[in-house]
């Protein structure tokens, strides 16, 4: 076993310290060391988006970030999208638009879509499709996902 290093980061607004091996990805650290299993591994090489988190305001595939790289940085994961008991408009729109079937890609899509709406509060369908092209869904054909993101973007809350 290689030596574990101590890492400090801010995750969903909370300062967090944890230990991880240098070979562990951020995704592995979140899931295996911190018990935050909302981000999923679909491909392990940055081609499906199921592991998406927001790192210092930028959307990243956490499977190809080393845990050691997030020292001192700000992270938002799917666990931090809702405000307490209050769902984010994207989460509500995904439910109302039936934008999930199996649900395994859903956390990645919601995190990715949040990163979009944070930058572009009122995207066009084309902008939504371009932004989400790094997230694979095999169940829905994307139709209802794109509609859910557009619907959430009409909510004023999404832009808060």
């Amino acid at each position: 076993m290689s030596e574990r290093v101590q890492i400090q980061a801010t995750i969903n607004g909370e300062p967090v310290q944890f230990l991880a091996e240098p070979r562990q990805s951020l995704l592995e650290a979140l899931r295996d060391e911190l018990g935050m299993t909302g981000a999923k591994e679909g491909c392990g090489n940055g081609n499906c988006g199921a592991c998406n988190v927001i790192l210092d305001g930028r959307l990243v595939d956490s499977c190809i970030v080393l845990a050691a790289e997030v020292e001192g940085r700000l992270l938002t994961t799917i666990e931090g999208i809702a405000q307490g008991n209050h769902l984010h408009p994207l989460q509500q729109a995904f439910l109302e638009e039936a934008a999930l079937q199996c649900g395994v890609c859903t956390p990645g899509f919601i995190v990715a879509a949040k990163a979009l709406l944070d930058r572009t509060p009122h995207p066009t369908e084309d902008q939504v499709r371009h932004w989400l092209a790094g997230n694979l869904c095999r169940c829905t054909g994307y139709d209802k996902i794109v509609r859910a993101v557009l619907r959430a973007s009409e909510s004023t809350e999404a832009n808060a």
């Binding site: 240098p22 070979r23 392990g44 090489n45 595939d61 499977c63 970030v65 080393l66 790289e69």
Partner: peptide, 27 residues
């Protein structure tokens, strides 16, 4: 050398870089 890591980390994880012992982050 690690910059964005989008190639290197994927290669390491896929076992295509067995020779690597140190990752040097230049960011």
């Amino acid at each position: 050398v690690l910059s964005g890591g989008t190639d290197l980390i994927a290669q390491l994880r896929e076992g295509r870089r067995h020779d690597v012992e140190v990752v040097l982050d230049i960011k």
